[in-house]
Amino acid sequence: MNVVIVDYGAGNIKSIQFAFKRLGIDAKLSNHVECITKADRVIFPGVGEASSAMAMLEQSGLDTLIPQLKQPVLGICLGMQLMCNASEEGYTDGMGIFDVNVKRFSNDVKVPQMGWNTIDNLKSDLFRNIREHEFMYLIHSFYAEMNDQCIATSTYGMNYASALRKDNFYGVQFHPEKSSLAGEQLLKNFLEL
């Protein structure tokens, strides 16, 4: 299977590449339109700050390419957030794939949320063989609000969307590549969608 990780200069993507390697898949890093378009599966990662990451996407034209992709696409962490309408982080527009906004956690909780939390109300084949309330590793200061595209929720001060889906587009707030065996199962499921 031809898996491409979108490489637009955002953060630690080696971990994701290694996670696929542990599953026996040699995932390619690329920012080329043709390479991404021809992939069987596309991973859209992201670590860092939303407005500067969005600026990098715009520079390379990837912000118009990604929403047009037809194969399964998985946004991870900031990647998922950039697939939403807009983010309070740097007050940037996103790609508008998921019809939801990204907000900052209130100071009633420690920010960033850092560590293992459960994912609840699982509603997709992406979570096949993953139990309800499974633990995933999260590290983030901003969150997507609940909406009807939500396929998993988590609770940190209040409930928020920890995974989203629209058609062939999936997004997860947690890091499957750092979430032990359950995370590996999720990546395997994504390959089998």
Binding site: K14, A19, K21, R22, Y137, I139, K178, G183
Partner: peptide, 27 residues
């Protein structure tokens, strides 16, 4: 990074942006 599927932190003797860039790049 290649073999471990949980998060890890690296510390000790880090004193520049370049040091950090290299370590993050290594995973």
């Amino acid at each position: 990074a290649e073999q471990i599927n949980i998060p890890f932190t690296v510390g000790g003797g880090i004193s520049s942006v370049e040091d950090v860039a290299q370590l993050l790049h290594c995973g």
